[in-house]
Each structure stands twice: as C-alpha cells, then as structure tokens.
Write a protein that binds this DNA or RNA. Structure first.
Lengths: 336, 336
DNA sequence: TTGAAAGCGCTAACAA
DNA sequence: TTGTTAGCGCTTTCAA
C-alpha cells in the first residue's frame, strides 16, 4: 500500500497540514521541521495521490490533445511538439484520435472520458463552421486548424491563403503556367483545402493566368495513397500540366511517386511543391519544396494559451485568434 | 458548476446510490425509477467526476504510453495503434516522450506525473539490461522493445534476429555479397541494433559469406538524417558494396536518398532493404523493400496484456514474453 | 509556524 | 429495489 500524507505525518510527528506544506513547497516552515518531514517522505517513498489532489483542487495537470490520427506525419510532429511544450509547464498530455470523423469530434468534446483533463487542444477535420456551437463547453479549448473561424474559443492557425499563394507564386516565378492541384475538397469554403485552393487562385489571378478546373483534383483524407491516386487520375485525364501543388506533403509525395513511375522528370517535366514541411520531405529524391506552416510555433502557442486560460481559473478573458508565420522552403522538386 | 450525483438525486427524488446504480448500468432498478433518474441526468447534463471516481475506486481508466519520440514514424504508428486499441477497452492514453534518454526513462517510471495512470506501456531505448530492476514498480508495466529481456514485467517484442536474418537472406538470394549495414550501435549486445546485426551475421555465415566490419556503419538515433550521414561515410570510405541493410526504414530512406544523389541506381547498383514497414516506405522511388515487424500486433497485444493485468487487480500472475510474427515485404528497392 | 477539521464527488458495504 | 453512511487522500480555511 502506498504511503499517504497521514503516514508521513505520523512518522514525522507533525500534522498532515505540515506535510502538505512541505510537499507543496511552502516557505513558512521551520527548517528542522522541513527536514524531519522530508526524511519521512523519503523513508516511506511517499508519492502524492493525484486523483485525490485533483478531486480536491479541481485541476488534474492533464491536458487533452484531440487530433485526427497520429499516422499522419503532420499530426505526429504536432503532438511531439505539444507534449514537449506541455512538459515544460509540468503538464502531461492525453491523446485522442478522431479519425477526422465529425461525430467523433463532437462526441469527444462532451465525453466523460476527457473530463479529467483541465483543458483541450482540439484539432478537428470533420466538423465545420456550423458546428461552432459545440465548442461552447465549460473548460478551456484551444482550437487548431481551419475548419471553424470566429468560434467561442481561442484559435491558433496558419496563414493558409497567403502561404498557398506564396507556394503557387514560386511555381509561377519558375515559368510554370499549368499548375495542377492535388487534394482539393468538394463543396468547401472553409478548411485547409479550401483556403489553400483560394491562395492558389489568388496567385494565378495576380499573374494573369486562367484558372482551369480540370487541373484541380479532389480527394478526401490527405494520405500519400490519395495523392498517388489523384495523380494517376490527372495523368489519365490527359490534361496537360507542368507543375503540381500538393495541398500537403503526404499528397505531394504520393503524387511524386506516380510521376516518377510514369517516367516524368521532376522538376524539369513537372515541378512539385507541398505544404507542411514534414521531416521526410527533405530526404525524398528529389527533395520536396514545401511550405513550413509554423507547426512548432502552433503547438507551442496552443499550449501556452491553454496554460494562460488555466491560470485564469475560469474567469472570462477575450478570445484570441493567433496566426503564425510561414516559410517557403525551396528544394529540388522545383527549378532554380 | 457541474452537477453532482447529489443534484441528480435531489432532482429525481431518489437517493444518491440509486443514481450511482443507474450511471453504472446496474440491472436491479425499477424501469420507472431508472427513467426518472435518466431524465434528471439529461436535464442537468450530469457528467461523472472522474477524479472522484478514480480516488474512490483506485482506477483512473488512463494508461500511459512511454516512448522515445512521436516524430519517429515507427513510434507514431505504434501510438496510433495503441490508442485505437485502448479505446476499444474504454481506456484513454497519456503519452510521454523520453527522447531515448536513459535518465528520463528511469525517471518516468517513478514519476508522480504518471501516478494517475493505471498502468504503463513502456518502450525504452536508453535503458539497458542492467536497468531491469527499475521495472519493479507497484503498477503493471508492459515492456516493449529489445533493451531488456527477462525483466520482471510482461514483454512484447518482435523476432529481431530472425527477421533481420530473413532480410539479409533476401539480399543474398539476389546474389548480393557485399551488404553494408546502416545503423549499428557500438558496444551493444542487446537492443534492436545488436539483434538485427546478429541476424545479419547469421545469414552471412549460413551463406558462407565473410563478415566484413568495414561494411558496418555506426550511428545513434535512427533518424533519416543519420541514415544519410552513414551512407555518405560509407561511400567516402571507398569500401565497395552492392546492397544496404538499413536497420530501420528511416535509416534506409536516408541512405537511399544519398545513393541517388551520388547517381547510384537502386536496385541495380545497390539494393536496399529496411525494417519497420512505415507507411511512407511504399511511396518512395523506388519503393522500399522492408520487414513488417508486426507493429500493430505488438501494440494490440501490449494493450490487451495490460488490460488483463489491470483486471487481476494486483494479484500475481506469471509474466509473459510474447513474440509477434514478422513478414518480409519485397518491393522495388531489391531485385527480382 | 503548525494543527484540527471539513469536504471535494464518488463507490461500496451494509441496512432497510 | 433503494437508502444511509463511511471514507478514498488531499487541500484549505480557520484557529491556536
């Protein structure tokens, strides 16, 4: 049986309160008392019971991270950064996967399973603007991504439109005019896909290049396999193109694989650019030009905002909308 | 303020025990009572307080997953599978990263931060056989990996030696005789690196091929970057080789990148095989021949074993050592 | 500076 | 079938 505050108090010949004070590092304790208590703690191998502490204090020291799936490299690297940052605040992270499914995303927000977290970092992929109401919960939520804007919570996101525009402009600057897009979503006006497509269109328009819908291929989840399938469809459709904008890196890498299967050279025949700057992008052949959307900054900002909310202890504070900076990283898959 | 059992009981005009019974799905309740209680629960939006439940019952419904880092695709995919399997048991997963650092691995085992987990799935990379004693803790631990054998806990691992031997044999069968190894660790007799190297040596010996230490390159963490660096060193050393065994996929992919930079053709000049079968392996150009070490089976077995231990409620049971099956998956990076 | 005691919300033993 | 009650281990007033 694990030792409790009582056991320590008895052994040290002090009251339970004094032990608690020592454990929690309060200052006003006579040094010899502290020493005696500490000795008893070490002796008994006392470890505080976090459930009891949490019940009493209303805080568990656990935050939740809700994301589509860890098998998507972007989210794995995001989770890595979130957990690392949380650790610097003394917080641990409970990770939930939703499979990008709207129902599961909504369910997790009111799930008793998540009730022992003090707050949530929430990255939906299935919910849409019309679901913003579900974010009204009685614990702090930091929203990530671009499925919902102007919701009731803090929000950390990237400059999708500007970044996608910059990516497209890099291709245009290289003289490419027939730029295919892999990964668009149908009937969306919000979400990463829609926003990045918007950036693409803005860049075309600014350059005086016509938008050709035949160059845009649609898919659902942004896996490598879907990038490969989309590229096959584009090639079979016979529509000509001299560049590809993968709306994320996994799509771009899947597409690149198919281009090379078909004997097309990158970047001379077809230039390729991605989005996310996942680690593997730089080890491909050719290495993938991409956009660093500020993933680490997003993760760290999200944790920091959540910690601030937690410190508020439920008091109201204006919601914040944070946009992190991006970077276009030129590698071998684009000319120049 | 969130509703409690008391509030629900008052509203429904029953005792707190009855509400508890309804919440926990006990059977012996009159239907109309149940209905009345359920109505009050819905009405008040009652959600059980998990800290209180956990304090009282001694179980939190949370398991811990301790791994080196989520940025390594192997561990991201492992975590994905662990979380998914845990969900089928109604458990949530707290993820901790150790950075493959021995001190941090040891620390996490006795960390109060992990005290609210019911048990741990523990995948060390820094600890060694001599640290087995640290695994003697008063909660269930399922050990993963091959750093410690014969320890006090259940253990789920892969057939490293046999799988590495099979991988090497595939290269030998293709007529390769100068097989370089990327990712070996110095002065190790245990651990994935040592075991896979052992499998490599066994295959060579069985085929009557001499072991040439000059073909073995050493590194630390199994990142793509280290695979690339090792391959550069091998090429600069001038030692001739016609095949490469990357001790994991990330290393193999990093190596493959450098081979192609240098204008070597895969597999005609140099065949490449990896280990792990991470998702991206099949989208490389050429796609990577590799070993599927049974990652999903490991994850699911680990969760199931932990759930069994949890059900035991601390009663003794013989420790188990589980070896999952592997598969060699031939793709384009090897001939034939 | 330290102690006594209440109570966080729940489960489970026991009673009715 | 339902109610009463003790107490899990801790933090936190309030008092000494």
């Amino acid at each position: 049986m694990a030792a409790t505050l009582h056991d320590v108090a008895k052994q040290a010949g002090v009251s339970i309160k004094t032990v608690s004070n020592v454990v929690n590092g309060y200052t006003n304790i006579r040094p010899e008392t502290r020493a005696r208590v500490q000795e008893a703690i070490d002796d008994l191998g006392y470890q505080p019971n976090l459930s009891a502490r949490s019940l009493r204090s209303g805080k568990s020291g656990v935050i939740g991270l809700v994301l589509p799936e860890l098998s998507l490299s972007y989210f794995a690297e995001l989770a890595d950064a979130v957990i690392a940052r949380a650790a610097t605040h003394g917080l641990v992270v409970l990770v939930e996967q939703t499979g990008a499914d709207r129902e599961r995303e909504i369910a997790v927000l009111s799930s008793p399973r998540m009730r022992l977290t003090d707050g949530l970092i929430f990255s939906p992929l299935g919910m849409g603007q019309e679901d913003a109401g579900f974010l009204e919960v009685d614990y702090p939520v930091i929203l990530l991504g671009e499925r919902i804007f102007g919701g009731p919570t803090d929000h950390v996101t990237m400059r999708n439109v500007e970044a996608a525009r910059a990516a497209t402009e890099l291709l245009l600057a290289a003289g490419r005019r027939r730029i295919a897009v892999v990964g668009a979503h149908r009937d969306e006006t919000l979400g990463s896909a829609a926003l990045r497509l918007e950036g693409y269109r803005q860049a075309l328009e600014a350059a005086g290049v016509d938008y050709d819908p035949a160059l845009v291929s649609f898919t659902t989840l942004w896996h490598r396999a879907n990038g490969a399938a989309s590229m096959r469809a584009l090639l079979e459709s016979g529509v000509g193109f001299d560049a590809v904008f993968g709306l994320n890196d996994a799509l771009a890498l899947g597409a690149m694989r198919v281009l090379q299967e078909k004997g097309l050279r990158i970047p001379s025949d077809v230039a390729v650019i991605g989005f996310d700057d996942i680690d593997e992008a730089q080890y491909m052949v050719p290495s993938l030009t991409t956009v660093d959307p500020g993933r680490t900054a997003i993760a760290e900002t999200a944790v920091d905002l959540l910690v601030e909310r937690l410190a508020l202890g439920g008091r109201e504070a204006p919601r914040r909308e944070i946009l992190v900076d991006f970077d276009v990283i030129a590698r071998e898959s684009t000319p120049g």
